[in-house]
């Protein structure tokens, strides 16, 4: 199954300057994303997992250029997004959309659902008449499982799950190729989560969408993703086909992360020996060399001195760890 590369990132890096202390005299840099090289293939779901502060959300925003990278490039179908003019980029946005985490915050409370879903259509002047827009909105609402009768209601009249359906309908309005899903189900109830996950899966099959699925929940990522990218403190530490990564995690961090997920079955209770100790280091002042070494039981001197690079250990499987770098 060799398919076309839709998005490629080259040394993508984002640093946020922060100020602290009185009069902001202590300038520091948050290294949100550091040197990320990724290929996203047409029609696949790339899962991005990691804990808070690992830069996964920033990465998503960099890919569709909601944020400008400090360094590096993003190629969408071979075109460099960084070299585009404001107008070109605006029109490029038809191809790439985003579904946000919080369905309460990502919908303007003062607009009716019809206007929210039609906004991308109007912005890019897809249809000539308002009637056509309304028809399309109706179609989208039906597709996403919201009754079209509710078109003239406000977001606050809906529950969280329905609002997330509205966000998805809105993201689909322009028939995009790529959708970035930034924790789309983590604000939802368990019984609603599965509805939304199934909806995302069905839509992908029907419309041939490409997803970048960002989540801290490893089980959700496993369900939806074809490939998984594990991030720690702004860096990719492991990338590979979902099944392989979950069955045989190579990077120590991936291993511990998978161990830590509480499994909904009391037969698999953990004991302490598999547990990762310590706290997540601050992205303002990450440890030298390998960022993970302060928590890693296998750390050696080399890990403190040298930054591990991503190595291909088997076809389609890359790991950034000195243990696998002969």
């Amino acid at each position: 199954m060799e398919s076309k590369v839709l998005v490629e990132t080259k040394d993508l890096t984002k640093e946020f300057p922060t100020k602290s202390g009185s009069f902001g005299k202590n300038r520091a840099t948050v290294h949100a994303v550091t040197d990320v090289n990724l290929q996203i293939f047409q029609g696949e779901t790339l899962g991005v997992v990691g804990e808070s502060g690992c830069g996964k959300s920033t990465l998503g925003r960099l890919i569709i250029r909601l944020l400008d990278p400090t360094r590096g490039q993003v190629f969408f179908e071979g075109k460099d997004l960084g070299k585009m003019s404001v107008e070109e980029l605006r029109s490029q946005r038809k191809q790439m959309q985003m579904v946000f985490q919080d369905p309460y915050a990502s919908l303007n409370p003062r607009l009716r659902v019809r206007d929210l879903i039609a906004e991308p259509l109007i912005t890019h002047k897809v249809n000539k008449t308002a009637k056509e827009d309304t028809d399309r909105v109706e179609d989208l609402m039906r597709k996403c499982g919201i009754r079209p009768e509710f078109m003239y209601r406000y977001p606050h009249q809906f529950s969280g799950g329905q609002r997330q359906r509205v966000s998805i309908a809105r993201a689909l309005a322009l028939n995009p190729k790529l959708i970035i899903c930034d924790e789309p189900v983590s604000a939802l109830d368990v019984s609603i989560q599965s509805q939304i996950l199934n909806l995302l899966g069905d839509l992908q099959q029907e419309l041939g969408l490409t997803y970048v699925f960002i989540s801290h929940d490893l089980s959700v990522v496993r369900y939806l993703s074809d490939r998984v990218c594990v991030m720690f403190l702004g860096k990719v530490c492991e990338l590979g086909v979902t099944r392989d990564i979950y069955a045989n995690p190579l990077h120590p961090y991936t291993k511990f992360l998978l161990e830590a997920v509480p499994i909904p079955d009391p037969k698999y209770r953990k004991d302490q020996k598999d547990m990762l100790t310590g706290e997540i280091p601050s992205p303002v002042n990450p440890p030298s060399g390998c960022h993970f070494r302060t928590r890693c039981p296998y750390a050696t001197e080399r890990c403190a001195k040298e930054v591990p690079q991503l190595h291909e250990v088997e076809p389609g499987r890359t790991v950034a760890c000195h243990l696998f770098d002969k």
């Binding site: 038809k94 946000f100 915050a105 990502s106 303007n108 906004e119 966000s167 809105r170």
Partner: peptide
């Protein structure tokens, strides 16, 4: 700074 403003930007609204 609200998410819906970011959402509108991502759609390409001027």
């Amino acid at each position: 700074e609200k998410e819906y403003v970011e959402a509108a930007t991502s759609i390409g609204v001027k």
